[in-house]
Structures are given as structure tokens and as C-alpha cells.
């Protein structure tokens, strides 16, 4: 019967992987899109779905 893998061992096995440029892009695009969309979605909500404002 295979032994259940231990978390500590699994984490020890983990190798360091530097943050790739593509990952940095993914993170920054996601945050920028989130911020831009925030304004747009708030405008749509307040304009077309008013409820108490």
C-alpha cells in the first residue's frame, strides 16, 4: 500500500522558481484590469441598476 505523502516532505522537495516575466505580466494585467473595470462596473451599477442611490 502506498504511503500517504507528508506535507513537510513535499514542501522540502519544492524547488525555488524565480518569478518569470510572464507571471509578472499576469499579475499586473489582472490588477490593472481589476482597477479599470471597477470604475466601469460601478458606473453601470449605479446608472442601470439603481437601488437606493
Amino acid at each position: 500500500m502506498a504511503e500517504e505523502p507528508k506535507l513537510a516532505e513535499e514542501l522540502k522537495k519544492m524547488e525555488y522558481e524565480p518569478l518569470l516575466p510572464v507571471e509578472k505580466k499576469l499579475i499586473s494585467y489582472s490588477l490593472i484590469l481589476g482597477t479599470v473595470l471597477l470604475g466601469f462596473l460601478v458606473w453601470i451599477s449605479y446608472t442601470f441598476f439603481p437601488a437606493g442611490h
Binding site: 507571471e23 499579475i27 489582472s30 490588477l31 481589476g34 462596473l41 451599477s45 441598476f49
Partner: peptide
């Protein structure tokens, strides 16, 4: 209708902001 649309907006924001930040901090 307002609750539904605003709920949808809220989760779009949560996905885009939450995930990117946690991934960045973990990495």
C-alpha cells in the same frame, strides 16, 4: 436585479484583485 448585477460585478473584481495579489505574495 440590482443585487444580482452588483453581485456579478463584485466577484469580477474579487477574482482579478484577490488572485493576483495572493499569487504574487505566495511566489
Amino acid at each position: 436585479t440590482a443585487v444580482m448585477f452588483r453581485g456579478l460585478c463584485a466577484i469580477v473584481e474579487a477574482y482579478l484583485i484577490y488572485w493576483a495579489l495572493v499569487y504574487f505574495i505566495a511566489r
